[in-house]
Amino acid sequence: MGNEVLFPGDTLGIIGDSSNGIRLAQTAKRLGFKVIVYATNEGSPTLADADVKIVGEFSDKAKLQDFAERCDLVMYESEHISSEVIAYLQKFTKVPQGSETLEIVQDRLLERAFFEQMNINIAPYATIVSLEDVYQAVSSIGYPCVLKPIQKGFGPKRQQIIRKQTDIAKCADIIDMGTYILESWIPYNKELSVIMTRDYDGNLAYFPVIETRYKENRLNEAIVPANIQPDVEEEVKRLAGEIVSGLKYVGALEVAFYLTESGSLYVKRIVPALHNSGYVFDKATNVSMFEQHLRTLVKMPLVDIKLVQPAGMVMIEEENIDDIRTQWVLKNNWYYTFFRYPESMRPQPEGYIIVLAENEMEIKQQIESTGIWDDLSKE
């Protein structure tokens, strides 16, 4: 299980059901690799691009072992796959992304302890195991704040925003479900993220910094280049590099930040996998996120990343489809990608659009003038 170069004809495994797997499989096939996909849903569109399809639960160790032993290398395309599953696969094949970083980021307490060890700015927080803990912690953290389970992946249903004291009682319905953190709400002007790749020797390659916008905790818009000063971009990359240097990880990953009005940067999260904000690099740079990720893992030379064209990416949700039809026949600088998820896997994004223009202001004007995404709000 060494780190030898892989060539066309070798076998790459992809585990997961998200939209990242679709593009990853397509890119791997274009580069000449045989692709085996392990998915939990037989309707997963990633399976359509697989040479070999395996459908099974992540708890099915026999199927997982069979999958791993067929592959020269396995990739996970989402940070939501259990670190325990990845650690099990590592017994039978190479998984260069590893399981250690997943283990850190899937537990909010471990993640924050890691950031504190790196001396990186994070939102003030407290560990919560009872309703009384919430009352005590609010006195030091202040309003507004948000209660979140330490395990990620539950979504808004296990979170509670606390804007005033009377909101604390609402936490009683979820507080008995496990350990939580209470985190201060950081007022910010922009959300920024940087996608980068780290090779086997620890060398880093950065994509341009992205300005992102969210709707109901889901990424909706990503624009490059971000409308920030050069010193802010340099600091984002410096901090991200420091963070990644403390991880055991090979491949592409995202580090996201809040930028406050005063110019302070607070780290929001690490995504040790492909992230959909990186779809914007399909057109914005001279190499896509997916190809650079694959090049890193199979030990091809990495592309010297350059911005080719200012670009924006907006996600297409089911409620956007009718309005998108109008733009379909009007816009000659909009580029569409659809995921073809079956009804059994909804709700999922329908796809995304890449918008090209001379600068980020024109990109925003094009998107906003349609009225399709008027309800974009901060996460």
Score class of each variant (00 low, 15 high):
S369M: 12
N227A: 15
F67G: 01
I122P: 00
W328A: 14
P301L: 07
D304A: 13
R213E: 12
I372H: 01
E211G: 01
I86N: 00
M177K: 15
D322E: 15
R112H: 15
L247M: 13
P349K: 12
G155L: 06
T46K: 05
S262L: 09
C145N: 03
Y258F: 13
D323F: 10
F339C: 04
G153Y: 07
G155N: 06
L265F: 10
M118V: 13
P225Y: 07
I161Q: 10
G251K: 00
P349V: 08
D374G: 09
P225F: 08
P208W: 04
R325Q: 15
I120G: 02
Q26P: 08
R295H: 10
D304Q: 13
L182T: 06
K283C: 09
P230A: 04
Q136I: 12
V55I: 09
N333L: 12
L192I: 02
V303N: 10
E79R: 05
G312M: 05
G21I: 03
Q90M: 14
V146T: 07
N3S: 15
V146M: 03
R158Y: 06
I36N: 13
R163I: 03
E57M: 10
S288M: 00
I150K: 15
G246E: 04
S99E: 11
A357I: 03
Q292G: 02
I316G: 00
F207S: 02
D60M: 00
K152S: 12
S130I: 07
F257R: 00
L31S: 06
S193Y: 02
R163E: 08
W328Y: 15
T285G: 01
L12Q: 08
W373E: 00
E221K: 02
E291P: 04
L330P: 03
A169Q: 14
G98I: 01
N333P: 11
M75V: 13
L109A: 10
Y336V: 04
N121L: 12
D199P: 07
N320Y: 02
H275T: 11
E116A: 07
V129L: 11
I321P: 00
N20S: 12
L147S: 01
V146E: 00
V329F: 14
T166R: 15
V303E: 14
F7S: 07
D133M: 08
L297D: 07
Y249N: 00
N217K: 08
